[in-house]
Simulated assay, not measured.
Amino acid sequence: MSRLLELSGLSAGYGGVRALDGLDLHVDEGEFVVLLGPNGAGKTTTMKTVSGLLKPNSGRITFAGRDLAKVPGWRRAGLGLGHVPEGRQIFPEHTVLENLALGGFPTRHRRGENERRRDELLEIFPRLAERSSQLAGTLSGGEAQMLAVARALMAGPRLLMLDEPSLGLAPLKVAELFGYLKRLHAEHGLTILLVEQQAGTALRLADRGYVLERGRVVVEGTAAELRDDPRVQAAYLGRLRQESA
């Protein structure tokens, strides 16, 4: 597999607080990679820095062989970086279809392709097809999260980054959402980088993973290796047992 995303010595923060401290990680084409770690470990900061919402203090971000240092955030979506931020951030006063159209803005010059992709996504997410003319602000939490994912997919990303997509969802909705992610990865070959607190569920889906603490990688390996690692078990054992029950 070819290297799609690589972070080398990445440091970033907010004011005088350093959230990333020399972070090194990578995602290969076609992989499903999960980022685990406690609150404040730097997971969300990693996503924001890659997508260009936060400027790094030092280090390098390479995407598909291109250094992103001088690429503004608004252009990165057009290069194939899709970001579903924590909290969904859909447009509540626009309909489902209007939200999807806005998601296709980076590739708006390819109108026919965008329409085809929209129709494919409505097949993948049939609940959105049922709600196509409904205002996004009236959707349930699970439907809103599906819309956030579908909107990011409208630009045809090579890498989809998701930050805590299960946050605030009922267990059945979490299972439904992760079922869609599994299908997108397995059937459509989508490369995924996932930040998730539900470690057991995430590791059952992922190929590989990293555990972050204080802005650095402290454990990395295949999903199976992480599940068997005593350090991961010590941090997530209760959650793993609860999710497996």
Rank of each mutant, 00 (worst) to 15 (best):
P92A: 09
L10T: 02
G156L: 11
A41P: 03
Y14N: 10
L135S: 10
A224Q: 13
V50F: 11
R76E: 01
T46H: 14
L226A: 09
T44Q: 09
A199V: 15
R3H: 05
V33I: 09
L237G: 07
G40R: 04
A245C: 03
A234R: 15
A206T: 05
G9V: 05
A235I: 07
V27M: 09
D163R: 01
L35Q: 04
A77T: 13
A175T: 15
Q197V: 10
E113I: 00
K43S: 07
G9D: 15
G141F: 05
D163Y: 06
L102V: 07
L7I: 09
V71D: 04
Q242P: 07
P157Y: 04
L68D: 08
L147W: 01
R151S: 03
R118C: 05
E130P: 02
A129I: 00
H185F: 07
S2E: 13
R3C: 14
T95K: 13
G9P: 04
A150V: 00
D24M: 04
H109L: 06
E115Q: 13
G142F: 04
A234G: 14
F125A: 04
E220V: 09
E164P: 00
L139G: 10
A77M: 08
L172S: 15
G80I: 03
R3N: 08
H94P: 01
R88W: 09
Q198M: 13
N39V: 00
R110S: 01
L35V: 01
L25G: 03
R76L: 12
L159G: 09
A12K: 11
M146L: 07
D163T: 03
L100S: 04
F125D: 04
I61D: 01
A152V: 01
